[in-house]
Design a protein around this nucleic acid. Structure first.
Lengths: 194, 194
DNA sequence: CGCGGGTTTGATGATGCTCAAGCCCGGTGG
DNA sequence: CCACCGGGCTTGAGCATCATCAAACCCGCG
């Protein structure tokens, strides 16, 4: 399981990990499996771990005063699942993260992660790149939410993230895009005929 | 002018810069001033520089097919202005960035910045922290855009970012929040009476 | 004074939401 | 093997929110 992460790091950096570094990673990241609908993080808890997803998928969402769920992030293989705010600030999270499919992941605490960053330059490089990608993706999503109507947001999403359409049901996609499942259903019906 | 950046780095890191590092920073970052409404980046160009704002303010926006401007980011002192996607990927930007007030800034190219990150661990630490803050802020804004109606988005914004209300006119704030200036005007009128 | 940028107000309409009902389909148990 | 159940998806009617368009207002500044 750890080899998946090591390959992932190598793929994203210029200098491959040497064996002692790989060993350090194997000794620090904790393997864990959870089943569909089990929680990785619950509202009110501090997000103690960052999770590298080896297999499966998870969802991050808040629940409003009317009990409605709002899906903020969807995670699949090779993504890092966590509530960034809680993980970095060590404050209680307002989000839940649970498994949507049975999921295998590798966990690391903030303290361990910071130590690894100093010990393994390649990991620091990967981490910086991942953060950049996260920022770019968030910026695009934000731009789309302030600039475009629901129909175009869905069209962009389905062309850029087709794999998510397969892995998650429509009502989750709808919420992720900031619309209701009914609206998404109508948008899709309309899109068929064009 | 460079001292502002050096102080800023020291404030965000555990180990203060030593003189040779400070000197390296002074030699690498290029001071530049632009006047209100001058462009720092125009649609179609590659974002060659990241800008640390010493004084003034800037706005990042896209222009849609009907000519309407959508303000994605607002920058004031001690923020880093750039189009992340274009700066990192070296692709042409779909955004404009211009000065809203007369602005003084320090510029650095991507290549120089990457070199500085290796040469100055404190800068790498600051950079990581800034990226984390950027991710956290983007996540909050995204959550608010999918979870809350315009009125609550404005209330949250004005309590968390009161300084922006002073620095930018309402029609820009409205666009930043993803609503029209007319709607924002009505929301504010309504909020007065409560 | 008049101009320009910003804000407000009003009337109208589109977009997307709510609530409620029905449908489809895969899985479970009788 | 079939009946039923539940989750997800669709459809419809009515409604709230927010956008559009047009006009007026406000105010600092040349």
């Amino acid at each position: 399981m750890h080899e998946s992460l090591i390959k992932y790091i190598d793929r994203y950096t210029s200098t491959p990990l040497i064996e002692s570094q790989a060993e350090l990673i194997r000794n620090t990241f904790i393997a864990k499996q959870i089943k569909k609908r089990q929680f990785f993080l619950q509202e009110g808890q501090v997000c103690e771990y960052a999770a590298f997803i080896v297999k499966g998928s998870m969802r991050q969402y808040s629940v409003d005063d009317k009990g409605a769920e709002h899906f903020l992030h969807l995670f699949i293989e090779h993504l890092w699942a966590m509530d960034r705010e809680s993980f970095v600030m060590l404050t209680p999270s307002v989000y839940n993260i649970d498994a949507w499919e049975d999921t295998e992941m590798l966990l690391v605490t903030r303290a361990d992660y910071l130590n690894l960053l100093s010990a393994i330059p390649a990991l620091a490089e990967m981490s910086r790149r991942m953060d950049e990608r996260t920022i770019i993706a968030a910026q695009e999503r934000l731009n789309s939410s302030i600039s475009f109507p629901a129909e175009k947001r869905y069209a962009d999403f389905s062309s850029k993230q087709p794999e998510f359409l397969q892995r998650f049901p429509q009502h989750i996609i709808a919420s992720y895009l900031g619309i209701t499942k009914e609206s998404l259903s109508r948008i899709r019906k309309f899109a068929m005929k064009t």
